[in-house]
Design a protein around this nucleic acid. Sequence first.
RNA 1: GCGCCCGUAGCUCAGUUGGAUAGAGUGUUGGUUUCCGAAACCAAAGGUCAGAGGUUCGAUUCCUCUUGGGCGCACCA
Length: 581
Amino acid sequence: MISFVQTLSDLLWDALQRAFPDASLPNACLEITLSTQPHFGHYQCNSAMRFSKALGCSPRTIAETWLKALPANTFIAKVDIAGPGFINIWVQADAVTAQLTMMASRERLCLPQALAERIVIDFSSPNIAKQMHVGHLRSTIIGDCLARIFEYLGFDVLRLNHIGDWGTAFGMLIAYLKQHQPDVLSGQQHTDLSHLVNWYRASKKSFDEDADFKQIAQQEVVALQRGERDSLHAWQIICAISKENYQEIYDLLDIRVTDRGESFYNPLLAATVNDLTAKGLVSISDGAKCIFLEGFSNRDGEPLPLMIQKSDGGYNYASTDMAALKHRVEVEHATRILYLTDSGQAQHFAMIFKAADLAGYLKQEGITVRLDHVPFGLVLGPDGKKFKTRSGETEALIDLIQAAIVEADRLLQERGLDLSAEALHHTAHVLGINAIKYADLSNNRIHDYVFSYERMLRFDGNTAAFLMYAYVRIQSLKRRTKVNPSIYLNTPLELLQPAELELGLHLLRFEEILRQISHDLLPNRLCEYLFNLAEKFNAFFRDCRVEGVSEQNARLHLCDITARILKTGMELLGLKVIEKM
RNA sequence: GCGCCCGUAGCUCAGUUGGAUAGAGUGUUGGUUUCCGAAACCAAAGGUCAGAGGUUCGAUUCCUCUUGGGCGCACCA
């Protein structure tokens, strides 16, 4: 759909060229934005000031000449010049109605991409033999949300879980299990992640303190990488136990992601290193294969390497990331790759991206692959420091989620709702998880944010519950009037009152918001949009009676579109929508 | 030391091609229901946008410096 701003922009651009046919304007792009104040109209154009120099006269004169050339049209109701040369625009309700009707007639509320660009989103990425913790929460939630938005926009999205399932740690864990837990490896004894975590700690201790064990562990790594059957089998058992644990979390959070861990790229590592070497990018430093890149130096001011092979011949995460990038471009044909990790890895990815560019991995069939590191800040505890439990341990994600659900349950019970125990429990479940997700997504991801059950579970303010409440209220109203949807959906929309027009204009901006997020990758913009939508609906609902008035069915139609966008928007954030609460 | 990120109301945060009087939420104070869900709405109060300079018609936004905080910087990922 051509956005409303675009339509206005086209109209004004034509007028500008008619008004100043001989002028060469510096910028073919008009600046049209939402008005900053209600009395400045619906939209404002700020370009007259910018053109002042090029046209050699004052912004006000430009604006006056410009608007005289604006032909009569069905979009603009009124224009006005204010201040130094701002052009304020009031739109015609009929034009909004027409666009809204067109939008609502489609099953999907925005147009799909002309070309289904292939986009890889690398997110979540827990580590085998470790609990998922808050650090994985943001990657998982934000990554899933971006994936949903890109899918909705019609991109061909490949969600990849780059699990930490390979590397030196497995040697010691396998060695330890062989020595102390043979029944687990033989499959005779089932176990869970909490035991695994303890064994991991114990094996680490032995590794650090016992030279003999260390040697055995290192041999296990070699055996594993060689693909020896016993070692591989042990590795598979360890992975399976871990996956059980994080699949439980993904089920709770409704996250869909394809497992493709570091181990997947193991067979590609040697070839990748060879390829980089053949391209002359690699030099040997202290026995390790390194790529030295301009602009990166270490604490002693010496060049900082991107190490792609260790001096002992082993590979590390840079090797895997280079191989993965190559695979995603060459085999998966990705034209864009997003990496959802904390901002601490910014330098690492900056180096990976630069090295990939130098190696020519980003040019494929005339297309330049776009790489985005999508960084995010830390989750902080109430003390403003990195989130920890009271005992100072890193909090397991599963506990965190359960706690939110328990807290939501308690709050709902306090309210004394007219719900069955089962319905209340279900609502608490949805509310708890929605609250965690929304609290995360509604903050700008760049910043650290303070985690607080109390704040995220509030029923008022910019929270998940506020959006859910706005939605159920609309659904309730639709039920209450007992009008068959086929009747109100076929009743022409009318935007008579200012609050109706405001709501209608806001509804039209949905696609524009999603497109913007596909560029800046900031889901908080969708949260803000939906929060404003709920507010504008509340204003409409305050000013415009729905039930039992002559405009009833037209207004029910508007309510229905509002509910659809609220629902779609919440689903794009990964929130569950309920019909009653 | 080098590099990256951040500093906006008491608190939590928006504010991205530079736009008019910097906005929400929360908290505080006051108000709104014979009427569609008051889990709502309205209003008041609250600011040196960390500080200083620069760029220009215009800077929270871009540049430089200062300051405070966070993170990264060779064989863990």
